[in-house]
Simulated scan of single mutants.
Amino acid sequence: MVVQCSGDALLSKIRVIDVTGSTNSDMLGDPNAVEGDWLVARRQDAGRGRQGREWQSLDGNFFGSTLVQLKDSDPPSSSLSLIAGLALRDAIEVAAPHADTLLKWPNDLLLGGAKAAGILLERAGDRVVVGFGVNLAVAPDIEGRDTASFADVVQMAPQAFAPLLAGAFARLLAAWRSSGAAATAMAWLQRSHPIGTVLRVHDGDRQVREGYFAGIEDDGALRLKVGDTVETIHAGDVSVVDSPIQGKR
């Protein structure tokens, strides 16, 4: 099934299929895919999250990917993760305006403090595939991590959610190109865990650091205050230890 979706900036083509291994892999390997194309699967057999983790495929959840064709004039490509998070939260706000959602660095959307969605970006040359996994219907069991689904706040099929996400992503991608990464970072901060939140970070070397959230760089890197020093972290797993507004997570 193919659906045409008019976003604020471009026309998105959404292809919905029953099953595949990974929508990210399919999109990245399709030489005919162009910016604005979306692939949505009702089920994935080989879905994955960050650092090669398995992404569970549960009935009724959303699994979809889109493509960005990088241009020489674009802001830093690493800041595309901010665009993806903002688009996901905007789409959820349309579907469920009263849902208690929050963006968590680097690529999660929290519902009531528990993980309800994740994002995976993969790049090949000047093509970046942005993949989304959203617990629309069921929260998977993940050891050591609180999870949630949107089933209690909205009843929505993946194919109905796809146009909301595609439209939000198109609009924010255009804003990213016209306004730059700094404006994107500012918008992300307004929708994330607040400054001063205590975070525990497992970086790429598997070192663990705990400190205070001190914002993000324009390229999307995390600023973590540890003692009297503000460190810049470009990759890692983050858990919220304590929020000055909303308590522990």
Rank of each mutant, 00 (worst) to 15 (best):
K13R: 15
K13Q: 15
V16W: 00
I17Y: 04
I17C: 03
D18S: 14
V19M: 05
V19N: 10
V19A: 05
V19S: 11
T20I: 05
T20P: 00
T20H: 02
G21Q: 02
S22C: 01
N24W: 02
N24K: 10
N24Y: 04
S25Q: 13
D26C: 14
D26M: 13
M27D: 08
L28T: 10
L28R: 10
G29S: 13
G29A: 11
P31H: 02
P31A: 04
P31F: 00
N32F: 11
N32G: 02
N32D: 00
N32W: 14
N32Q: 10
A33M: 09
V34L: 12
E35V: 11
E35Y: 00
G36N: 13
D37W: 11
D37N: 06
D37Q: 04
W38P: 13
W38L: 07
W38Y: 15
L39S: 06
V40W: 01
V40K: 03
A41Y: 08
A41Q: 03
A41I: 09
A41C: 09
R42P: 03
R42S: 01
R42Y: 01
D45R: 09
D45A: 07
D45F: 09
D45S: 15
A46K: 09
A46C: 01
A46T: 03
A46S: 12
A46L: 11
G47D: 07
G47A: 05
G47W: 12
R48C: 03
G49Q: 02
G49Y: 14
G49H: 06
G49C: 01
R50Y: 09
R50N: 08
Q51K: 14
Q51E: 10
Q51S: 08
G52R: 09
G52Y: 07
G52F: 11
G52P: 08
R53V: 02
R53C: 11
E54G: 07
E54F: 05
E54W: 02
Q56Y: 14
Q56M: 15
Q56R: 05
S57F: 07
S57L: 05
S57I: 02
G60F: 06
N61W: 04
N61P: 07
N61Q: 08
F62R: 03
F62W: 02
F63E: 03
F63N: 07
F63H: 15
G64N: 10
G64E: 11
S65M: 13
S65I: 01
T66Q: 09
L67Y: 00
L67K: 10
L67F: 00
V68E: 10
V68W: 02
Q69E: 15
Q69K: 07
Q69R: 13
Q69F: 04
L70D: 14
L70S: 14
L70V: 15
K71R: 15
K71M: 06
K71E: 14
D72I: 06
D72L: 10
S73C: 08
S73T: 15
D74S: 08
D74P: 07
P75W: 13
P75S: 03
P75M: 06
P76G: 13
S77C: 05
S78R: 12
S78H: 09
S78P: 06
S78W: 06
S78G: 12
S79R: 04
S79V: 13
L80P: 01
L80K: 14
L80Y: 07
S81T: 15
S81D: 05
S81C: 06
L82E: 01
L82Q: 13
I83D: 12
